[in-house]
Write a protein that binds this DNA or RNA. Structure first.
Lengths: 224, 224
DNA sequence: CACGATATACATACGCCGTAAGCGTGTCAA
DNA sequence: TTGACACGCTTACGGCGTATGTATATCGTG
């Protein structure tokens, strides 16, 4: 006989791996990566922490599943005839996916493990398609994928973590205090910094995408 | 009167903020970011955890200082007359810096805070210099900096965290098991994956750098 | 030298964390 | 009916960041 002999709520929505993963993802998006603890996810589900272990091996397993769930949200872009435009769309979709869950890039940085799951590989497939249609050799496609992927990951990282920009203690002009002391030794920063603060993220992203695509077109053209 | 009345070690190297930061950085490089705990850093210094708080406000303050210390390791490249070559060198130096302390990119991803310290701004200055010499407007320089920076950060992230590549459970051919089930729906991945595993990181990095520089040159030329 | 102020190291404790181990109970097949 | 099993709960352990309070070494001042 237990101390509390009241009947617990009779109907109890069944706990499943899927519901656990969904809760973790929701919590991550709502409260940030640090808020995703086994106890917090359990609380969200009206359950004790240890119950989750019936459905995930450990926390790493859970976070792997969260990554997979996010990658499942990839929307394969409609196919353009023009491979350049198709590549552009693929790049935008990768960025959209990462930005849809802001802590995602942090999660990827924490988890040192290749993305070898099906959903992730389908995303890779979508990104490779325009490159192959452009006439890349497999090797060129691999290098180009790495380049575009690097750019997108890094851009989103800098974007979501605000790596460069005004500090919290900026003046009304958006200038880091640290800059002032020896501004004369940082002329370029002084000239360019205001632009970094005011430019639009979409525009900046397109700028880099254009650069990469122009570079790739040139490289492929010079080969022929 | 205390319980232990033996004189503690008489000579005790003085604890300073600098020694604390150095210990944290060493520990990070040697054992990974997760190993950097207040207790572990203190242990390294033969001291109790709470003693560190006389020299750092809290852990965040400590990690900020670690970032700053790393940025101080930036070696301003010797100035080329050719801005393209100078930009290439700056890009290589940024990557060298990040790779010299592998957990650094993870640290940057965790810390959602702009880099507004002097050392960081000097690194930015070095990166902006070739761009300004190339004839960029401040706005173009800001966008180009963002593009190159994004590429470098993302490349290093994918490189150090092995985002794409063979899984731990790869077969002898370096293939993720997940690929096999529906290989026919992933033809490009099947063709390109082997290249991703075998290509050299230096070459891949230069490939992307070339693409970006070619794109930028084209953009600036078309403007004139 | 004496002595109080200050700086700084230490000890203890609290509420988090991930998770190992074992228990209790509801469900269902035989 | 019963016994096995699935699955949620309880307890407990060691580690985390750090608030709080205490002891001691150092130093400026008389």
């Amino acid at each position: 006989m237990t101390l509390k002999d009241q009947p617990r709520p009779v109907v109890r929505t069944k706990l499943t791996r899927e519901r656990v993963v969904d809760s973790a993802l929701e919590l991550m998006d709502a409260e940030g990566l640090d808020a995703v603890t086994m106890r917090a996810v359990a609380r969200e589900l009206g359950v004790e922490a240890m119950s989750l272990y019936n459905h995930v091996r450990d926390k790493e397993d859970l976070m792997d599943a969260v990554i997979e769930r996010v990658m499942e949200g990839f929307r394969r872009p409609t196919k353009h005839n023009d491979w350049v435009e198709a590549a552009r769309e693929a790049g935008r979709e990768w960025r959209r996916l990462l930005k849809a869950h802001p802590p995602m890039i942090q999660l990827l940085a924490d988890h040192s493990k290749p993305m070898t799951t099906l959903a992730a590989l389908h995303c890779v497939e979508s990104a490779l398609d325009p490159l192959m249609r452009a006439g890349c050799t497999p090797r060129e496609a691999a290098d180009a994928f790495n380049t575009f992927g690097g750019y997108i990951f890094g851009f989103v990282l800098m974007e979501t973590r605000q790596t460069f920009g005004p500090g919290a203690d900026d003046t009304s002009l958006g200038w880091p205090q640290a800059l002032v002391p020896d501004i004369d030794r940082l002329p370029h920063v002084a000239a360019v910094f205001p632009e970094m603060c005011t430019s639009d993220a979409e525009e900046r992203f397109e700028f880099g995408l254009d650069l990469l695509l122009a570079g790739l077109q040139a490289k492929l053209a010079s080969k022929a």
